[in-house]
Computed example of a mutant assay.
Amino acid sequence: MTRQQKRAMGLLLGVASLLVIIVVAARDGGSDTSGLDERSYKAGYGAFGGANLPPSDEDREMVEIRCEEFFRPWAAGHDDAVTLDRDSWVTGCADYLEVRDSRF
């Protein structure tokens, strides 16, 4: 193998390695939002209209149950609710009630 061929092979290996790193970073970079529908999440996060509520002292499971219960009455007043992902909405609602920063 000539020196030029070795250099070209090294360059190709470097580019391939860089691509792998970029793909892995892109997949892991959004781990907080993995599987969440942004529009639905934001609707759940904003369901209380920005009301200044005290943080919930319940565990996450109970907060999510309360958000699940709240979804149906909330959705009744919002025509576009049928197009929302309920799980993402509940996550947004629960994050708001736990006074977490929005994930989007």
Rank of each mutant, 00 (worst) to 15 (best):
T2W: 07
Q4L: 13
A8D: 08
M9F: 14
M9L: 15
M9Y: 10
G10C: 05
L12Q: 03
G14V: 02
G14R: 03
A16H: 03
A16W: 08
L18V: 13
L18K: 01
L19I: 13
L19R: 00
I21Y: 03
I21E: 00
V24K: 00
V24Q: 01
V24T: 06
A25W: 05
A25S: 08
A25V: 10
A25G: 05
A26L: 12
D28T: 02
D28A: 05
G29Y: 02
G29M: 01
G29V: 00
D32R: 06
T33R: 02
S34Y: 06
S34M: 13
G35T: 03
L36D: 04
S40P: 07
Y41C: 05
Y41I: 06
Y41N: 07
A43Y: 03
Y45M: 02
A47Y: 02
G50R: 09
A51P: 12
N52R: 15
L53N: 12
L53E: 10
L53Q: 14
P54C: 04
P54S: 13
S56L: 07
D57T: 15
D57M: 11
E61D: 08
E61P: 04
M62H: 08
M62V: 04
V63Q: 04
E64A: 07
I65H: 10
R66E: 15
C67W: 03
C67D: 07
E68C: 00
E68Q: 11
E69F: 02
F70R: 07
R72N: 15
P73R: 09
W74M: 04
W74H: 08
A76G: 12
G77T: 12
H78R: 15
D80R: 13
A81R: 12
T83P: 02
T83M: 09
L84Q: 14
D87Y: 03
W89N: 11
W89H: 06
V90Q: 03
V90P: 00
V90D: 04
T91P: 01
G92T: 11
D95T: 00
D95I: 00
D95H: 00
L97N: 09
L97G: 04
L97S: 10
L97D: 09
R100H: 15
S102G: 14
R103M: 06
F104K: 05
F104N: 11
